[in-house]
Design a protein around this nucleic acid. Structure first.
Lengths: 315, 315
DNA sequence: TTGTAAGCGTTATCAC
DNA sequence: GTGATAACGCTTACAA
């Protein structure tokens, strides 16, 4: 393993010059810089991250804390982790997966937190190290998320354009910010078209939205599209419509939200908002590392939604 | 942050004594040990992992390399990672997710590799650091896996016990060891009952097994049970049987393998082997850390399969 | 602009 | 059995 000293010898400079070339290149003359670069290349020098961390009193560890229950989950979080890990790897940081319980065990340089609810706000505020949330919030924490409002706004717009005359919103029964935003997108689109919003909310389980449709089937007019807050709810709606003999997409439309996995296993596939979770994960990582290394706050980073066409809206 | 020196001062010993209490407690007298333990407790001392790593020339990083394509995946790997991360956290190691491409970037102390195919054997053999595979193999690498053979053996046995007269095996068209084992379990059970094995193999996509049943529907006698090598294949079989008007579980049986996610979203739910991936992940971590810290080879670690009852076999 | 010295928190080595 | 010393590879502070 080649070290700073090896490079320094080869380049006939002190090891400090080498260190400076790496960390403060503007404070070294170009000639020396060239010499050092050459030596580094010849020796295939890679800085020792551990030594760096020790000298800097840093850990090079980022903790990812998933506050939601992850037993019942889709590959959603897997993709998030892949995205985060990708960025962290690039910067030689490593990712530690923690829960609320083992959160404080071991040191780290910053946190990525997802699945935050109101009850979590206080302890997050008390954290002394940089934090980036995955998921919008109204408490001033930096975050990365899809533009939730735009998502349901666009899907509602598309449904109307396809000729569905009634739009019913099927939401998640939760006080989280993303849900308010998704509702707001639907409401805005509906009101712009002088229609009356109709919202129903359930826990995020497909059998709940399924039951709702089955029990209210006779009151649901043909030519209705359901704008759902998640693919999970959309799947339930779809199953119920089919079981009740409704025709998708001819007589009824369904849209989801997430586009990670569930939309694809449904039949017909659900027209949904595809969130590029991997990219968003990478963005979380980059935001956080910026914050750690520069001390600057990044502010929210919002991804614009993309519609992923399935077979649950008319062509 | 309290250090060795702080503890040493408090306990009136040299820092080396403190270090020894931690790493070689047998080489310190009991009296001093007590003093040191007390000082550590009072000061809430936690060793600095980074400094340790620097002194030991270690990294405290474990790389997890998933060789399979993970775009099309269930929460399978998520659970694996959770399991691994749990153990590593406990031992203050951290997990780095890498692919074959960025495999060599950055140092580490050991590898967990999953999804190995024959083509990967050579480079894995060349690795100089400890390795544990997730998934059985016949190349002598240490691994953790479910007892695949026992799994299909048990499911076949159950199907026969429930009165199905024909058993057809639907396998994954792959030369990996786990597939051979699953086939072997089926074959053994069938032969013990003096029946003739019938095997079909497909890539692991539900629509392929689905097509097979649809195209051969008239040749498939009532009272047949399909023993599938994965829940994915089982879902396809189930869909086809239902579409063709067959009755599950009355006239046809289906069993899967994995029990992670897909078995639950099917309707009726698939009777399958539930692999406790999280536990197995933890075991991977423990095996690897043992190997790293003691230098000892652990050998394979096999988990006994558990049947998870769904609604695709008669009661 | 460059180099020297000290220190980050730990462990291995070798005296005592 | 215990302690002083050097070393791990790097960075900051200070001196030249």
């Amino acid at each position: 393993m080649t070290t700073l000293v090896d490079v320094a010898k080869k380049a006939n400079v002190s090891k400090m010059t080498v260190s400076r070339v790496i960390n403060h290149p503007d404070k070294v003359t170009d000639e020396l810089k060239q010499l050092v670069y050459e030596a580094m290349r010849e020796l295939d020098y890679h800085p020792n991250v551990i030594a760096k961390a020790l000298a800097n009193k840093s850990t090079r560890i980022i903790k990812l804390c998933i506050l939601e229950d992850i037993d019942t989950t889709e590959p959603y979080y897997m993709n998030l982790m892949i995205g985060i890990a990708k960025t962290l790897d690039l910067h030689q940081y490593s990712l530690q997966l923690v829960t609320r319980r083992n959160f404080d065990i071991g040191n780290c340089d910053g946190y990525i937190i997802t699945g935050m609810r109101e009850a979590d706000v206080d302890w997050i505020k008390k954290l002394t190290k940089p934090v980036v949330l995955f998921g919008e919030n109204r408490y001033g924490f930096d975050y990365v998320d899809t533009n939730n409002k735009a998502g349901t706004y666009l899907l509602s717009q598309l449904a109307l354009k396809k000729g569905y005359e009634h739009l019913i919103y099927i939401g998640i029964d939760s006080k989280e910010s993303f849900e308010y935003s998704r509702e707001a997108g639907y409401i805005q689109q509906v009101q712009e078209n002088r229609m009356v919003p109709e919202l129903h909310r359930f826990d995020n389980h497909s059998h709940l939205s399924e039951e709702y449709v089955e029990q209210n089937w006779k009151n649901i007019p043909k030519n209705t599209a359901f704008i759902c807050a998640s693919d999970r709810l959309a799947i339930g709606i779809e199953r119920a419509i089919i079981r009740c003999g409704g025709k998708i997409p001819d007589d009824f439309g369904v849209t989801g939200f997430d586009g990670v996995f569930l939309n694809q296993i449904a039949s017909p596939r659900i027209t949904t908002i595809k969130q590029s979770i991997i990219e968003m994960g990478s963005a979380c990582g980059e935001n956080l590392l910026d914050k750690i290394e520069s001390g600057e706050t990044s502010g929210p980073l919002v991804f614009e939604p993309k519609i992923c066409l399935g077979g649950t809206l008319r062509n």
